[in-house]
Design a protein around this nucleic acid. Structure first.
Lengths: 135, 135
DNA sequence: CTATAAATGAGAAGGGTTTTCATTTAATAT
DNA sequence: ATATTAAATGAAAACCCTTCTCATTTATAG
């Protein structure tokens, strides 16, 4: 019951928000741009404006329900937040996105931030390459 | 003599290109946006169009003379390519950018790409935080 | 059930970047 | 040196993704 999540975040339970959540949960892409979400909504017959999709996704991000990936200066993609930090591998040919976690890298990052006197707030690691299918 | 570098890259030696190179070499910022470069040109009395600055920076990137950092969905910044791979720490308050290299992380990245069957072409690691000055 | 603050849709506006196209310039051949 | 030609430039328009504006609608608290 995700209405609870919305209320907890101080957000009214509205149809656009429920539908966006539903799409993020049902998609097998896992990583969707605002445009992707918007099109999926249209496909399921929901006439929700693109501006609303952007607003809702940003609110979800603030609420910790989704994570935003800012890929290489291009458009952002969103993924449902599962609480487990992970980084990304991106196929430069087909745009497939794969996830991974690596404790060694996480640890090194903390050490580097500390050494440089930075209070780390976040980090992002993208490995670009050509995936198995595309080679 | 950087005219050689331009010719080697198949680029004509023109005043805009020489001036942009000069600015990137002289700046103590090291990381400059296209707008930064454009403004520096104006300050030194060179009336070079912003579109040209973008074009030149992109050509320099293709030629391997500069590297482009795509920071968090915002604007791009450019740095003179020194051949030594490094990653970046970014202060979320003052936008200061610091560099670091870490062989352990480099090695782990290669291992992960291999394990996932990716032919790695590039990678980007950004650590966001609050720098010493801003804490 | 009413009041009210929040959410929505549509379109305009925004920021950074790229494109278009006419003009200028560097490099090449004469 | 000069003419030729392909490349580079400037200015403005176009672009893409995203955010804002504002009038209208809707969820929630009283």
């Amino acid at each position: 019951m995700e209405s609870q999540d919305l209320r907890k975040a101080g957000l009214k339970v509205t149809l656009p928000r429920l539908k966006v959540l539903e799409i993020l949960e049902k998609t097998e892409q896992r990583h969707m741009s605002a445009e992707d979400v918007y099109k999926s909504l249209l496909e399921m017959g929901e006439e929700i404006g693109l501006a609303t999709v952007y607003r809702v996704l940003t609110q979800f991000e603030d609420a910790g329900l989704v994570a935003r990936l800012s890929i290489d200066g291009g458009h952002a993609v969103f993924e449902l937040e599962d609480g487990i930090h992970h980084d990304h591998l991106l196929c430069v040919r087909c745009n497939r996105i794969e996830e991974f976690t690596d404790d060694v890298i996480e640890e090194r990052q903390r050490a580097i931030a500390k050494q440089k006197g930075f209070q780390m707030t976040d980090h992002a690691l993208y490995i670009y390459g050509i995936c198995t299918e595309c080679q």
